[in-house]
Amino acid sequence: MEFKRVTLLAGHYGSGKTNIAVNLAMLLRQKRERVAIADLDIVNPYFRTKDSQYDLEQAGIRFICSEYANSNVDIPALPQTLYAITDDRELSCILDVGGDDRGALALGRLAPGLLEENDFEMLFVVNFYRPLTSTADDALEVLREIEIAGHLPFTGIVNNSNLGDETTPDVVLRTADRTQELCGKCGLPLRLTTVNRPLVPALRDKIPNLIGLDLQAKIR
């Protein structure tokens, strides 16, 4: 996979952004020396990139997140180190944006810098098995709401359709039509399809730009 300097992952909450962000950061680190992952989720303090902080830092990935993340203090505060994303143009970044338009509000501060530099990719993560994004039209509505709130245009789609433990190759393949429809309606390319790694062999020949994900488990 080719990366721009900054890759943003946004979408409906619970669509799988955080897990994809962590996996993409690991991939990016194989290609570039200076890599950072930023957790911009100021909406939901329950599931966070920070849960994978140890693994990420072991892999030499810089970690940018609110100092309140995982402290269970419910403060929608962004970290001051956030400015490294736009100020340090030698740094390659993966941005895990909070869910829905509310989560994308945090992008407003970064949008002017990212637009001016124009070396970013903003990916809309969709799981068509999530009830509020189960059709192309519903997903498109969320996509537009996020663009308005975040002041940034999407540049591609990531199909992360899954049913958790009950995901089979067929579950993924059945969303191909809806993905096509969404891409047609918003005029954006299907950039990636992401699946749990064990499903990759069965789908490799059927889906282009397929990436296998390692699940980050939260056990405490």
Binding site: G14, N127, Y129, R130, P131, L132, S134, N162, L163, G164, E166, T168, V171, R174
Partner: peptide, 12 residues
């Protein structure tokens, strides 16, 4: 299984 969706407990 065709009719299943992936939901949070709160959403359910």
């Amino acid at each position: 299984m065709a009719d299943k969706v992936l939901m949070k407990g709160n959403e359910a």
